[in-house]
Write a protein that binds this DNA or RNA. Structure first.
Length: 256
DNA sequence: ATGGTCGGCAACCGA
């Protein structure tokens, strides 16, 4: 089984890249973030023509998540918070008896801002949601754009970023709670290599060419899932075409 | 060479 995640930064702008990649890689499940499209405008038909079911929640201009899959998503849930979400950042369900959670964590703007506090609250709420509703010995994958890098080897300028948004100890401590609960960073299960990034800021001139990136997209799995992962790789196909995304595809093979 | 990020969506916000 091939499982992947990709921040599209607009699914409509990235549709040629996305369809090309689906044709080439034929993943069983693909989690998408920042679709930036309202549900009535979601490009369902071309995806169905490629043999995919799609579950999605969008909103105007910002955010938006989707799960594409060859088998339909069962028991879909579209809200993290019990009272319902104001922002489209969460979608979960079950496929072939594997629980899937796809998330787009708030970016956080600046340390100390209201948006930063919301990011911390969101991460804590995601942790509590998982701890209250899932078991660490059951099959669960949590994938998406976490907007947090964990270690020096995961960013191109650790000393420059330390204490800033995306590389702040409070964010990292909240990420640490996921690992303590029992989730495994599947990328780090397979390699200790540094400078392996999934995101390059558009605003850095030639940032991709100079590999000035961050590893902020993850596939996390409970131990039974991590044990079934035979490989994981960063696929920069999304950077090769005319309208590159600022993120890449992150893909893992699972023996299920 | 005389600029220099994107996308959404209609003036800027968010990343």
């Amino acid at each position: 089984m091939k499982f992947a995640t990709f921040n599209t930064n607009s699914i409509r702008a990235r549709l040629p890249i996305l369809l090309d990649w689906l044709k080439r890689e034929s993943p069983d499940i693909l989690c998408l973030q920042e679709t930036k499209v309202q549900d009535q405008d979601f490009p369902l038909e071309p995806l169905e023509q490629f043999g995919y079911h799609a579950a999605f929640r969008g909103q105007k201009s910002y955010n938006g998540v989707a799960i594409l899959s060859k088998s339909p998503l069962q028991d879909p849930r579209l809200d993290l918070f019990e009272e319902g979400d104001e922002q489209a950042r969460f979608i979960s369900g079950t496929i072939d008896s594997i629980s899937i959670i796809n998330i787009y964590v708030p970016q956080g703007s600046q340390v100390g801002s209201d948006k930063f506090q919301y990011k911390l609250k969101w991460l804590q709420s995601l942790h509590d949601h998982i701890a209250n509703r899932y078991e660490p010995d059951a099959p669960l994958l949590v994938a998406g754009d976490f907007n947090v890098a964990m270690e020096d080897r995961d960013v191109y300028d650790p000393d420059g970023f330390r204490g800033g948004v995306g590389f702040h100890p409070e964010e990292q401590a909240l990420m640490g709670k996921f690992f303590k609960w029992g989730l495994v960073d599947i990328f780090r299960k397979h390699t200790t290599e540094a400078e392996q990034y999934t995101f390059w800021d558009y605003r850095i001139p030639n940032g991709f060419k100079r590999n000035m990136g961050w590893r902020i997209d993850y596939i996390l799995g409970t131990v039974p899932m991590a044990e079934k992962s035979s490989a994981i790789w960063i696929d920069t196909h999304a950077r090769g075409l005319k309208k590159p995304s600022d993120h890449t595809f992150l893909v893992t093979s699972l023996n299920v």
